[in-house]
Simulated assay, not measured.
Amino acid sequence: MALTTQANKNSIGIASTETTAVFNTTYKAGSHSSHSGIYKCSKCGREIAFNKDDNPLPPHYSNNSCRSPEWKLFIYAQN
């Protein structure tokens, strides 16, 4: 789970209904995304930090039991 401090809590916004579609898209490892942020695997819950310029989205580490991640945007980074 992504965490922040109490002091930073007020700096986090809530997505509007117009932008929630980007949070509902699922990406497989090797897919490209145009959004930077924290992605979470909808199968096992692992979180990764991802920069849109670092495409494609990565696979899990070899020691992870979840072999085919399904990444969903969890926290959007406005950069």
Score class of each variant (00 low, 15 high):
residue 19 T to W: 08
residue 31 S to P: 03
residue 56 P to D: 05
residue 32 H to W: 12
residue 51 N to Y: 07
residue 16 S to W: 00
residue 12 I to V: 14
residue 7 A to F: 15
residue 27 Y to F: 13
residue 14 I to M: 04
residue 18 E to S: 14
residue 53 D to Q: 13
residue 33 S to C: 11
residue 73 L to D: 10
residue 46 R to G: 00
residue 40 K to C: 08
residue 59 P to G: 05
residue 25 T to K: 15
residue 35 H to D: 11
residue 15 A to N: 05
residue 55 N to L: 05
residue 44 C to F: 10
residue 55 N to V: 09
residue 5 T to V: 05
residue 57 L to I: 03
residue 76 Y to A: 08
residue 68 S to C: 02
residue 34 S to R: 12
residue 10 N to R: 15
residue 29 A to E: 06
residue 75 I to N: 08
residue 12 I to A: 04
residue 63 N to M: 13
residue 8 N to C: 09
residue 33 S to P: 03
residue 73 L to T: 01
residue 24 N to I: 05
residue 60 H to G: 04
residue 7 A to Q: 15
residue 72 K to D: 08
residue 49 A to W: 03
residue 70 E to L: 06
residue 10 N to G: 15
residue 35 H to T: 07
residue 58 P to E: 06
residue 27 Y to G: 00
residue 9 K to S: 12
residue 19 T to R: 10
residue 28 K to C: 00
residue 57 L to H: 03
residue 1 M to L: 11
residue 48 I to K: 02
residue 25 T to E: 14
residue 68 S to Y: 09
residue 38 I to T: 05
residue 71 W to C: 03
residue 59 P to A: 12
residue 3 L to W: 14
residue 75 I to H: 07
residue 75 I to G: 03
residue 48 I to M: 04
residue 39 Y to L: 02
residue 54 D to L: 04
residue 78 Q to G: 07
residue 27 Y to R: 06
residue 13 G to I: 04
residue 45 G to K: 04
residue 18 E to G: 04
residue 61 Y to Q: 02
residue 76 Y to Q: 13
residue 55 N to R: 01
residue 73 L to Y: 09
residue 15 A to M: 07
residue 13 G to V: 08
residue 41 C to Q: 05
residue 20 T to L: 07
residue 57 L to F: 10
residue 9 K to R: 15
residue 47 E to W: 00
residue 11 S to V: 07
residue 33 S to V: 02
residue 28 K to Q: 15
residue 70 E to C: 04
residue 48 I to D: 04
residue 74 F to G: 03
residue 36 S to Q: 02
residue 55 N to M: 02
residue 41 C to M: 06
residue 12 I to Y: 15
residue 30 G to A: 11
